[in-house]
């Protein structure tokens, strides 16, 4: 039943496995998931330092164990409403590839849920119509009960934002 998916190109989210462990988190009442493998740590909200002149989507840095790492709000990339942090807010530190360099990046989350197994058979490619957000930033949707979980395409988000910033998104 999954022959179509299986013949597609190598997939960063579903490598060989049909199942991944994923960390679920919430942004503006939508549930997102990140492959647990890329997650380094979940931090309580800490003071962030704004970087004037940086792309709005990563416009601040934080101190992560003596390293200065960028803090990204993927809400902005998706064009969602920004939100103040609340008592449930967390920063998820992940490792992503930014133009060939493994980079630690903090990602803002309104709330972090559990780690759960997501199955490939439940996944659906992003519908080409009817999406409120940029389609190429979404890797796929996974159905879980009555709701859909969004798996963002980190590669695309960070590569794209970098390209944008290369053209000079600054103030």
């Amino acid at each position: 039943m999954t022959s179509v998916l299986e013949t597609s190109r190598p997939d960063p989210i579903w490598p060989e496995a049909q199942q991944i462990e994923a960390l679920l988190f919430e942004l503006n009442r939508e549930t997102f998931a990140l492959n647990a493998k890329v997650v380094q740590e979940i931090l309580d909200v800490m003071p962030e330092t704004r970087v004037p002149g940086s792309p709005s989507f990563v416009n601040s840095v934080i101190n992560f164990r003596g390293k200065v790492i960028p803090l990204a709000d993927i809400r902005i990339a998706f064009g969602m409403e920004p939100r103040e942090s609340s008592i449930d807010s967390r920063f998820i530190v992940i490792e992503v590839d930014v133009s060939g360099e493994a980079t630690l990046v903090g990602v803002k989350a309104d709330k972090v849920h559990e780690v759960t197994a997501l199955s490939r058979t439940d996944s659906e490619p992003t519908p080409s119509v009817g999406m409120r957000w940029r389609q190429d930033y979404i890797h796929c949707l996974v159905k879980r009960g009555s709701e859909f979980i969004i798996i963002p395409n980190l590669q695309a988000i960070f590569a794209h934002e970098e390209r944008l910033s290369g053209n000079g998104i600054s103030d």
């Binding site: 970087v51 940086s54 840095v61 200065v68 960028p70 980079t103 290369g166 600054s170």
Partner: peptide
């Protein structure tokens, strides 16, 4: 500390 490439525009 150097800054990541994401902040190359700053």
């Amino acid at each position: 500390k150097s800054m990541s490439k994401l902040h190359s525009t700053a």
